[in-house]
Amino acid sequence: MSFDTLSSLAQQRPLRLLLVNAGEADAITWAGLAQPLRLAAAALGRDALQLETMTPAQVVLAQPNWHIALLVADEQQAPLSSEQARAVIERCRSAEYWGGVGAGVLWLAKAGLMADVRIALPWALYADTEDITERAILTPHLFELDGRHLSCCGGAASIDFALTLIEHLFGANVQAAVKESLCVERVRGPEERQRVALQARFGALQPRLSEAVTLMETNIEEPLSTDDIANLVGLSRRQLERLFKQYLGSLPSRYYLDLRLQRARQLLLETNHSIVQVGLMCGFSSGSHFSTAFGSLFGNTPREERQRKLASPS
């Protein structure tokens, strides 16, 4: 789901945002999320954004009154006690949009609150998901918004996640000012992937799925058909589609298209290739097909994406 749906909150004044720090204050998962939002709050003033940061012990005593609430913990953090976790999660769930960052995502999933929800979980925690009975859909992305549920894999991706929230809630100018303060040149989008996530999760358990994705990643300019990929990994088309649906929540053709479009977006932002060249390099022989597919995934055209790059402060 597009982060554009957060625009419904953009009219709220003041917008009340809660961050619950269940980990260490100097962990990058926490600092990367909190610092951009603090800078935005300072620039906007309390009439526009009221940012509250609390410990688990503090939040259970607070009166719920937030538009967004996030439970944050570094991936190495030990879980909260079951009683404290229930109380903290109950407070967070009272917000219009709520979720977790880093290990907080895993705790929400283990509480049975992410059933059939697309979540971005730190790849290092994939091994801890075996006992989750209410299955979430683990994606390899940096962060996700599914319905009211927000999730981010944490680490350095917390910075990208915070800056994306700022853009959609308060506009590109506020985001640009915070980026400049932090010396951030490019914000990675929610569709970008944790580099080792798929191999870490599926390499041993689902080697054919991992092999199929590798084939897609290495055949961007001249895409293979779904039948070709199935044959190359030794599966029927139906078996391959079942694996993708079960583990990635997508059909192979859709997943492959998204990979190509993500590569196209990267080229538009990081190179000076023409839009036509970028389309051809990512397997699109038709400019109109490229533009339509790109707009469907990202919400803007390749030309608008390139203009964003040109307009960004150096």
Rank of each mutant, 00 (worst) to 15 (best):
T5K: 09
E222I: 08
H289Q: 13
D128S: 13
F202L: 04
A293V: 02
E185K: 15
E167V: 05
E96C: 08
E180G: 14
W30I: 10
A103C: 07
P122S: 09
V72C: 15
P140A: 08
G299Y: 02
P207V: 11
P252Q: 05
A124E: 08
Q50H: 12
L257S: 11
A197Q: 03
E130Q: 14
Y256R: 02
Q84D: 12
C282F: 07
Q206S: 10
L44T: 03
L169D: 01
R38S: 13
L205C: 09
E96P: 05
T133R: 02
G100L: 07
S181T: 15
L15N: 03
T29Q: 09
E217D: 14
A176W: 02
S7H: 13
I229Q: 08
Q63S: 05
Q194W: 06
V184N: 04
T271S: 11
S291Y: 00
C153D: 00
I132V: 13
R188I: 08
A41V: 06
A22D: 14
A69D: 04
M216I: 11
R201M: 09
L70D: 04
G23L: 08
F170L: 07
A42F: 04
L70P: 06
V20P: 04
A204Q: 12
R265K: 10
G155Y: 07
L33F: 09
A230S: 06
L71T: 13
R242E: 13
S94Y: 13
S81N: 10
L251A: 13
L121D: 00
L125Y: 11
S286T: 09
E130Y: 04
T271G: 05
T164M: 03
L121Q: 04
L182A: 12
V72I: 15
G104F: 09
W30N: 07
L106G: 05
K309P: 01
W98N: 06
A87Y: 07
G104L: 10
L310I: 12
R38Y: 02
R46M: 11
T53D: 15
S94N: 11
E222G: 07
G100V: 09
S296G: 11
L198Y: 01
M281G: 11
S274P: 03
F161M: 02
L44Y: 04
A69C: 12
P64H: 06
Q35V: 15
L248F: 03
L15E: 04
S253Y: 00
T53M: 12
E52M: 04
W30S: 08
C153I: 07
T214S: 14
L243N: 05
M281Y: 08
Y256K: 02
A212H: 06
W66A: 06
Y247M: 02
L297T: 01
Q277F: 08
A57T: 12
V213P: 07
L209R: 00
R208I: 05
P190I: 01
S250L: 06
W66M: 06
Q277V: 12
S7E: 08
L49F: 04
